[in-house]
Simulated scan of single mutants.
Amino acid sequence: MTEAATPLESALDVAALILILIGALLCLTAAIGLLRFRDVPSRLHAATKPQVLGLILVCLAIALSLRSWPVVAFLVPVVLIQLATAPLSAHMVGRQAYRNGTIDENGLYVDELAESHRTPPAAGG
């Protein structure tokens, strides 16, 4: 015989369902943005901001749904690693795109790398 769910458990399940839905929609918009945007900075924005927030919401929904401390202990490093690696990878991709010349330099408001772009890194000056 199964026990009836308490109102608190039902509310947590509904909250988990809503968080999963919002997180999945954010991840979907990130994927659509990667396909639809034309330039590298816009694609980097689409790849990092909504995707990371979507992952956080999905992990929060999993934690609310399963209500287990070992699950939370597993999800916290997943979120922390994602928060650490997404900006770093976006920075590296953006820097390489700048070096390759695939970024529209006329569209930049401030070009802090203009001086390093003129002088090759190993030229010594």
Rank of each mutant, 00 (worst) to 15 (best):
M1E: 11
M1I: 12
T2R: 05
T2G: 14
T6D: 10
T6M: 12
T6G: 06
P7F: 00
L8Q: 06
L8Y: 14
E9Q: 06
S10G: 13
L12V: 14
V14Q: 06
A15Q: 06
A15Y: 13
L17C: 09
I18P: 11
L19D: 07
L21Q: 04
L21S: 15
L21K: 10
A24T: 14
L25V: 08
L26R: 10
T29M: 14
A30T: 04
A31E: 05
I32D: 01
G33I: 02
R36Y: 02
F37L: 10
R38A: 07
D39H: 09
D39L: 09
V40L: 12
P41C: 01
S42E: 15
R43V: 07
L44R: 15
L44H: 09
T48K: 09
K49S: 00
P50E: 03
Q51S: 10
L53W: 05
G54S: 05
G54M: 03
L55Y: 03
L55E: 14
I56H: 04
L57Q: 12
L60M: 04
A61Y: 01
I62D: 00
I62E: 02
A63K: 02
L64D: 00
L64C: 03
S65N: 06
S65Y: 12
S65T: 14
L66N: 11
R67N: 15
R67E: 13
R67S: 04
P70K: 05
V71W: 04
V72C: 03
V72G: 08
L75N: 02
V76H: 12
L80R: 10
P87D: 11
L88R: 08
S89E: 02
A90D: 00
H91M: 03
M92G: 06
V93T: 02
R95D: 09
R95Y: 10
Q96S: 12
Y98L: 11
D104A: 11
G107K: 06
G107W: 01
G107E: 02
L108V: 11
L108H: 03
Y109P: 14
Y109C: 07
V110T: 13
L113G: 02
A114K: 08
E115W: 10
T119C: 05
P120M: 14
A122W: 12
A122G: 09
A122V: 11
A122H: 11
A123H: 07
G124V: 11
